[in-house]
């Protein structure tokens, strides 16, 4: 997921991050507007071709779509029962295509490049009194914290299992949030020590 950048030197790798993000925006908008299953199947074929161009390999492509496999199945079943089969195919393809496209940008673009691009796009906020450097720091801290908090969640799950309170959301939530807050406060102190606090 995050930090899933796969080094390479395909056309897609060499495109600037801004172009790829703008392309993602445009493609996602088009995909949302498409309603015929045939058009969406075409879109899926285009995405598959783009993956082939990027040269990241089938395993990396599957890793991007894998998290939504159950969601896609459930969505397909629900649409199949509640609407028409064509609509079920279209809705499911739409989700998978959008996720695959976002994943393609993720694996071919360094997170630092995405952040630098966001910083440029958001710099007009300076006029509203927001410091763009702090803003991009906030964004990259959030991205960097996802794997940390995810690891924390896994450890808390294991502790829960060991204590035999697997079904208690409270025994999951309290240690997770406290752990996250501890991490945040350590992070805050480290930033202060590096002089980010002098405003």
């Amino acid at each position: 997921m995050t930090g899933a950048y796969i080094p390479g030197d395909s056309v897609l790798h060499r495109l600037p991050a801004g172009a790829k993000l703008a392309g993602l925006l445009a493609c996602c908008t088009v995909v949302v507007l498409l309603s015929s299953p045939w058009a969406l199947a075409g879109a899926a074929a285009v995405v598959a071709a783009l993956y082939a161009v990027s040269g990241v390999g089938a395993a990396a492509a599957w890793a991007q779509v894998r998290p939504v496999r159950w969601f896609a199945l459930a969505l397909f079943a629900m649409q199949f029962l509640l609407a028409t089969p064509a609509q079920a195919v279209a809705t499911t393809l739409r989700v998978v295509v959008a996720v695959a496209l976002a994943g393609l940008v993720t694996v071919t673009t360094r997170t630092s490049a995405v952040m630098a691009c966001l910083e440029r796009v958001l710099s007009p906020l300076r006029l509203a009194g927001v410091d763009p450097v702090r803003l991009s720091l906030l964004l990259s801290l959030a991205v960097r914290s996802v794997p940390v908090v995810s690891g924390l969640a896994t450890r808390v799950r294991e502790a829960q299992r060991a204590r035999g309170v697997e079904w208690s959301v409270r025994a999951f939530g309290v240690p997770l949030v406290v752990g996250a807050l501890r991490h945040a406060d350590t992070l805050g102190e480290a930033l202060a020590a590096r002089g980010f606090d002098d405003e």
């Binding site: 159950w70 927001v130 914290s145 969640a153 406060d185 102190e189």
Partner: peptide, 27 residues
Amino acid sequence: FTLGTGDLARVAVFTALIAVLGLPGAL
């Protein structure tokens, strides 16, 4: 809009927390 580094870190970590709560497999 007056955020110290402590606030900044907490906001970032809570963004991550909300994201993690949506991850399949995390919970």
